[in-house]
Design a protein around this nucleic acid. Structure first.
Lengths: 227, 227
DNA sequence: GCAAATTAATGATTTATTCAAG
DNA sequence: CTTGAATAAATCATTAATTTGC
């Protein structure tokens, strides 16, 4: 009954970082979006326009994980030539991302990610997945930070049981698994963030309508358009 | 000093299965692979060949979840024309998927997914994400089924404490969070399932080399090639 | 002062849990 | 109730800080 949204991945230009010019690197070729930048195109059958096109998660790459391979068999791991490993966000990028986060953005949709990626691309190599991951991780870690602080506060003004001995050096100390949404009661708050319903060829959707509860514009610098 | 791997997304061919002569729903347009079908290609810099090219998850679609959207604002959700909502696997599809699962496949890589999707496309509408999700869910649910059975067995032959009252109607009953890998000791067994390291243009990798501990061929019916 | 060893942050995956369509 | 779809939590792995020995 819904539309089917075909997701079209558009390739990134492949060899992009030949001359990174690290700090601000203006010329990040292509690579606007890795792959998960698919948008919902043809419904596969003449469907009506959904309320929203249903999102879609992007499954992993299916390639098995190579846990500590590089460590185990580190034979001649030469040339750290250009940064090609994991994304290393520049201060500007982090600043903007945090601004957006504080603005209330939790899980940006494809259009938003595209914008953000495009914008942050000015400050260094970045891909859509980086933006996505950043929000995922940041959200999660802010939450757990808050949680920790919360129950530490509770315990402090409750019985002062000195549970500070927990994280002396033990990072993952079994976790409490409690207080899932106690303090951070804003569980699933503003889940409706834009739409991402790029219908068919209308890829130029504004996506600036997300006036949910935050009034922060995505990128005031770039109201619209690609240029 | 590490090596880096750049992951390059490759576009899907869009309309590959133009005339599959399917048994059930004939006109499945393209959609051989959604987007998460990227593979790790060139390292962007002359890196040495990794043990394996590092996988890459495919971040969700970024479109916010529409939990009960269609229910909340179900204004004129007309025409249930053709099934376009969620994938409804045909018996043949399920049969093949279960066969593959029993064969040992847990998380197929992109090449495998592509194949499976393409193959199962003969039996009805299907997308790569469906295959991916199926394996995810099936794995998870088989695991929890096994876990449940395991500790139920234990409790039965231990003290017969009748903990069956737990899941009368309460699906998510806080979970035990215990016995993470007690009975299902095969934790992360055959994680090495193929490679997905389609090197460069050699997209016609066999992907039939995964002779890990299962000898089941992916699709004996279709040894290789698209046609 | 620098480079190897160690620790802390955090980017990237995988797994578990939840939601809702059929 | 089953199960496809999506999100959140947990986990892993890599990179930057930091420390230590020279």
């Amino acid at each position: 009954m819904r539309l089917h949204h075909l997701h079209v991945a558009y390739v990134e230009k492949a060899s992009s970082s030949s001359s990174p010019a690290p700090s601000v690197s203006p010329s990040i070729p292509g690579s606007a979006f890795p792959a998960f930048a698919f948008k919902c195109l043809r419904p596969l059958a003449p469907k009506i326009s959904l309320p929203e096109p249903r999102k879609m998660i992007a499954p992993p790459d299916f390639v098995p994980r190579a846990r500590n391979a590089s460590k185990l068999l580190n034979y001649a791991v030469q040339v750290p030539t250009a940064g090609t490993t994991r994304w290393n966000p520049s201060p500007e990028q982090i600043k903007v991302l945090e601004m957006l986060y504080r603005g209330g953005m939790r899980t940006p949709n494809s259009v938003q990610i595209e914008r953000i990626t495009d914008e942050l691309g000015k400050y260094g190599r970045i891909e859509g997945k980086n933006v996505f991951y950043w929000f995922q991780n940041h959200k999660a870690r802010e939450r757990q930070k808050q949680k920790r602080a919360a129950l530490l506060t509770l315990s402090t003004l409750d019985s002062s049981s000195l549970l500070a001995a927990n994280e002396t050096k033990e990072g993952p100390e079994k976790k409490k698994k409690e207080a899932h949404d106690s303090l951070t009661s804003c569980k699933r708050r503003c889940k409706a963030w834009g739409d991402g319903a790029g219908d068919g060829d209308a890829a130029t959707t504004e996506a600036a309508d997300c006036t949910d509860d935050v009034t922060l514009e995505l990128f005031p610098l770039r109201p619209q358009g690609k240029a």
